[in-house]
Write a protein that binds this DNA or RNA. Structure first.
Length: 645
RNA sequence: GCGCCCGUAGCUCAGCUGGAUAGAGCGUCUGACUACGAAUCAGAAGGCCGUAGGUUCGAAUCCUGCCGGGCGUACCA
């Protein structure tokens, strides 16, 4: 559709440019609200009439004859206040769409695109909020790859931050454990730390004097002194493995894991610091509240300055992030070393190291960077970009994109269900923010377990003949599909108030609904093969061989065929649109609408039982086309495609 | 205080750079399984798109004020 519209645009401009002051930017091609009004709508006469001070309808009527030789168009009409509506030749258009299925629509635009997502502090189990981040980032990556882009997925590991210090403190000073004791802990280590972290937090509230011990731990971790450093490393690596396992459950993976410890070890910050000093982007404060700190001025705010280096000489998160962002664009003239961390479905995920290591692929050096981080960090992200600007990297600053989204919060009801105490204050609110410190939150693995369990029961009911191993697999696929669709269906600026009943639903606008639609289509083809020995062929070959005119169908069926096929043909526009706006709820809605249309068609028209060969073949074309589109859209959203369910 | 975001059906949400009669899902109520799988479909009820102005041939959409809610604004990340 994208290419078809582009062609159409060019032709319309060609036909009209001599006579009318029509600019390309004015020539949008949209869709009619109703099928009976035609297929494509041109609103430009309305605008043009204003400029030319003429009546829009009159102008539109005058233009119509000039468009008579547009390709694959049956009829042109003036409608409403002055729209020009195009009726496509259904057969030609369909053949053209089938023909373009295996052709490239998109071209690579960037040398390399880096997406940073997930970024969970390695001190506790992942929760639902992290799942939203990972699903958004992963989906963006899949779509960009579909658009022929070279994409690198990075998951930044803050392995030397305060959060890791807190848990280290918990193990050493509260539980008096040695590294060996910690290594012996069995079961889910990330869950263990989840609980420990909340205990640490309440302990610290009661014992403010522990701050000095925490500072000591932080320093020792940064300097590599034992046993603090090795304990912290054990904690963060072990939890990182747990996070990667969790993400694997929803088919999210990464190329490289840059660590904060390597940023320190490789002295990225020292380099960034001297650059910032040199350009006078930051300066030392010698009086007032921020005395002894290196700070950056905030744009549009004369009063405020953001601290980059604390008075004790340690660098804040933002400082390290500026260094990291510079590295992503290849502006630091320094690089990490790497080693393999884990194998994920035959692919190596690399982790950064500070010391030289075995040969590794090259990472970083992107031309466009997306940072998937929730909207609460907008301010910090703005400062990072400002850092790039003040170093003179204007174009990189523009290509440094904060992909922001709203948080996942909890309904008071779901808190109750988790058995967590709700304060009187929180009860009054519509939602409660997830809090790692208070241990308030739905753990990602718990949610996935519940989804899987529920899916397994449903699969068991319907597929008793399948071996249990396969039922397990299907249950996993359904759980993944349900979760990923749930995370994508909301617009990114919408706060998801998490509710178990809603998230565990498999009916209506859900992932399983989409999966079920595909299973139904596949099932028709399976039966065609079993019963009639129907040999599945490439759609294009099939259509060319059979060469059946569409207008032999009854009028109603022609209209129903067309509604489905025409809608399906818009899928690449939806991808484009979703990527431009970073709004994958568009893609999700598209998939859902497509399935709704398909299911309606499915109920109305039989394929297997149809006696008339031509009609039957046309129906096969239709569902095969829909299947192809649906498969692509599902895989872009990372929704698995079960064989049965 | 300042900055960003949100307010659409009983509930949860879509609605693209302004376009034709504001759409889904859940819930409620009617119907449809000797199967191409009912995790589905057909249908009904349900709306002053927070509010008041402005721009426009045209506004849920753009601008301004107000009301209500959220999040930022840390020598936490």
């Amino acid at each position: 559709m994208i290419r078809y519209k582009a062609n159409l645009k060019e032709q319309i401009l060609q036909s009209l440019m001599d006579r009318y002051p029509l600019k390309e930017s004015q020539l949008h091609i949209s869709y009619t609200p109703q099928a009976k009004m035609g297929d494509l709508a041109l609103p430009f006469p309305l605008q043009l009439a204003k400029e030319m001070k003429r009546h829009p309808r009159e102008l539109a009527t005058e233009i119509v004859p000039l468009l008579s030789d547009l390709p694959r168009i049956d009829k042109i009409e003036v409608a409403g206040p002055g729209f020009i509506n195009l009726f496509l030749n259904r057969r030609d258009f369909f053949l053209h769409q089938v023909d373009s299925l295996d052709k490239r629509t998109f071209q690579q635009e960037e040398k390399k695109i880096i997406i940073e997502h997930t970024n969970i502090n390695p001190n506790k189990a992942a929760h639902v909020g992290h799942l939203r981040n990972a699903v958004l980032g992963d989906t963006l990556g899949r779509c960009l790859k579909y658009k022929e882009e070279n994409v690198e997925i990075q998951n930044y590991i803050d392995d030397t931050g305060i959060q890791v210090v807190d848990v280290t403190f918990g193990f050493m000073d509260m539980e008096h454990k040695t590294l060996e004791d910690i290594q012996k802990i069995e079961g889910k280590f990330d869950y263990y730390c989840w609980d420990l972290y909340t205990r640490v937090f309440s302990y610290l509230e009661k014992h403010p004097d522990s701050q000095s011990r925490k500072s000591e731990i932080l320093r020792k971790i940064e300097d590599g002194q034992q046993p603090e450093a090795e304990i912290a490393e054990h904690i963060s690596r072990r939890i990182l493995r747990a996070h990667l396992e969790t993400m694997k459950r929803i088919d999210v993976s990464y190329d490289v894991l840059p660590c904060e410890s390597s940023i320190l070890g490789r002295k990225f910050w020292d380099k960034a610091f001297s650059l910032l000093k040199e350009k006078e982007a930051i300066y030392l404060v010698d009086e007032g509240l921020n005395k002894g700190c290196w700070v950056m001025r905030i744009e549009d705010d004369e009063e405020r300055e953001k601290i980059i280096i604390r008075s004790d000489g340690t660098v804040t998160y933002v400082g390290k992030d500026i260094a990291y962002q510079l590295w992503k664009f290849g502006l630091l003239q320094k690089d990490f070393y790497y080693e393999p961390f884990i194998e994920d479905n035959g692919k190596t995920i690399w982790i950064s190291t500070a010391e030289p290591n075995e040969p590794a692929p090259t990472f970083g050096d992107g031309t466009l960077v997306y940072n998937v981080i929730d909207t609460r960090q907008s301010y910090l992200q703005k400062i990072v970009v400002q850092g790039l600007k003040s170093l003179g990297y204007q174009s990189q600053a523009k290509k440094s994109i904060h992909y922001s989204y709203e948080m996942v919060a909890l309904s008071p009801k779901s808190l109750d269900e988790l058995g967590q105490k709700v304060s009187a204050e929180d009860k009054e609110r519509d939602f409660v923010e997830v809090s790692g410190r208070k241990g308030l939150g739905v753990k990602a693995d718990d949610l996935l377990d519940r989804l899987e369990q529920k899916a397994f029961l449903e699969v068991e009911k319907r597929n008793q003949e399948l071996p249990s191993e396969q039922r397990r697999l299907i249950a996993r696929q359904i759980a993944t599909g349900a979760l990923r669709y749930f995370m994508l269906k909301f617009a990114r600026n919408s706060i998801i108030v998490f509710d178990f009943e809603e998230a565990l639903n498999f009916e209506g606008e859900t992932g399983p609904y989409l999966q079920y639609s595909l299973v139904r289509i596949n099932s028709i083809f399976r039966k065609l093969k079993d019963r009639e020995n129907f040999a599945e062929k490439d759609l294009k070959t099939l259509v060319l061989e059979q060469n059946i005119p569409i207008d032999t169908l009854p009028e109603q069926e022609q209209a129903d065929f067309w509604e489905l096929v025409f809608y399906a043909s818009q899928f690449e526009e939806e991808i484009q649109h979703s990527v431009c706006s970073l709004e994958f709820s568009h893609l999700a809605k598209f998939a859902f609408n497509l399935c709704q249309k398909f299911n309606a068609y499915y109920h109305k028209y039989q394929v297997l039982a149809e006696k008339d060969q031509n009609t039957k073949s046309l129906r096969i074309w239709t569902i095969q086309y829909v299947r192809e589109i649906l498969k692509r859209v599902l895989s872009l959203m990372g929704i698995p495609q079960p064989a049965r369910m």
